[in-house]
Amino acid sequence: MKQTITVLGAVAAAMIATSASAGTLEDVQKRGSLSCGVSTGLPGFSLQDEKGNWTGLDVDTCRAVAAAVLGDANKVRFVPLTAKERFTALQSGEIDMLSRNTTWTHTRDTSLGLNFAGVNYYDGQGFLVQKALGVKSALELDGASVCIQAGTTTELNLADYFREHGMKYSAVVFDTSDQTREGFEAARCDILTSDQSQLYAIRSKLGNPDSAMVLPEVISKEPLGPVVRQGDDAWFNIVKWTLMAQINAEEMGVTSANADQMAAGTNPGVKRLLGTEGDAGAKLGLSADWALNAVKQVGNYAEMFDRNVGPNTPLAISRGLNAQWNKGGILYAPPVR
């Protein structure tokens, strides 16, 4: 139902508005808060606790933008969306940006009227199986029933993978991550498939986490990142460069703890980033301390990663692909200059 309403909202918005999309920055400034689309609940990425506080890597990505634009990381209104609802919510203007473990694909980038502003987590699709089945590899899954979430790249990759290996499957499709997990627990299916980072989170939510295991195969590339509407380049730049600022900050050794000190220091690259030299902020239509605020209030990329999904969290994910380019990963932010 909610889906229908969102869709109709998008349709109605498209019918009436002729010159909407431009000016997201002004809208956000006027409103005094950023409206950010996140998931309905996914540990490590976007999850709401009993007190209503949101945490997660995707949540922090929104907060950093709020800090850069409004100077306050807490001025965010989080809008929980299922996979099916997310794009229409963005197209219709219900949210200013989408930060909901969303894979950057060609179709989404070219035909939805949306733009991907970068990658905040490099992921890949994997499988979770009941240990009792005794399966050791995804290639033994011929004839299996698979629980998946509707409206994801997961649905498509799954079909590709089974077709490529000449195997059969039946797809049991649910709307939310919780329903998918419940279906898996109730033996409606043999395996559950989703982005690998999410498999660990889902596994940790099982009644008996030890009854299930993640298979070694990673069957796809899932670069996840924030998304904005196409046609508003100023806003696109802000979201893109806020994320880049956090990645650059890590590379340069700037953290939430030492940011003020570093800004007053001598490194010209750092000074340009943190606004004590040059006019990087002005070029984005923001104040000079845009990146300083983001890093001070939310942290650099490493802080954001460690806090939400790193080794000391229940998800215990190592940096892997998500390490800096000079540390064995592929995180590589263009320079601020």
């Binding site: 409206g151 049991v172 499709v173």
Partner: peptide, 27 residues
């Protein structure tokens, strides 16, 4: 759709709409 029975709304207005993004036509 609430329980994942693949009816018109689930399959077409759900997955197909989502994979193609063509909301107006599909609705």
């Amino acid at each position: 759709t609430a329980i994942g029975y693949p009816d018109l709304v689930g399959v077409f207005m759900g997955t197909t709409l989502n994979q193609t993004g063509q909301a107006v036509e599909i609705v």
